[in-house]
């Protein structure tokens, strides 16, 4: 099933949500990604991914308190669910395993 594997951007979004802890809402996620990767994260793309992740059950959301900013509209805060966390960990494990298998000299030239 496609849903169990994470896409690259999906993983990025999940990581960002995890790193923002309690302050992960769409605009903040966009900004964070932009800051860390240096590439522009469009709201439209992030919004679609968030929606998909929520459908997959990897994240959950709830609306925050109304404030005077944002034209009085509430923010939707995202947090990781248990399956979300597992899939992140699994993705990291998979990478780590692969990293471990790479002999040191293969990447030597890249580090110079």
């Amino acid at each position: 099933m496609k849903g169990t594997n994470l896409g690259e951007f999906e993983e990025l979004v999940l990581l960002t949500i995890a790193s923002l802890v309690n302050d992960a809402y769409s605009v903040a996620i966009c900004d964070e990604i932009e800051q860390h990767t240096g590439r522009a994260a469009k709201l439209g793309v992030v919004h679609a991914v968030l929606n998909r992740l929520e459908e997959k059950g990897l994240i959950k959301s709830k609306l925050g308190e109304a404030t005077k900013t944002r034209g009085g509209k509430r923010k939707r805060f995202y947090t990781l669910t248990v399956p979300g966390k597992t899939s992140l960990v699994r993705a990291k494990d998979m990478r780590d395993q692969l990293w471990d298998k790479i002999p040191a000299f293969v990447l030597k030239s890249a580090s110079i």
Binding site: Y25, S26, L43, H47, T69, R70, G71, K73, R74
Partner: peptide, 15 residues
């Protein structure tokens, strides 16, 4: 169900 926070996001960007 998607409307409110989307409106908010767009407002934030607008500002």
């Amino acid at each position: 169900e998607l409307l409110e926070d989307l409106q908010g996001d767009l407002n934030e960007y607008f500002d």
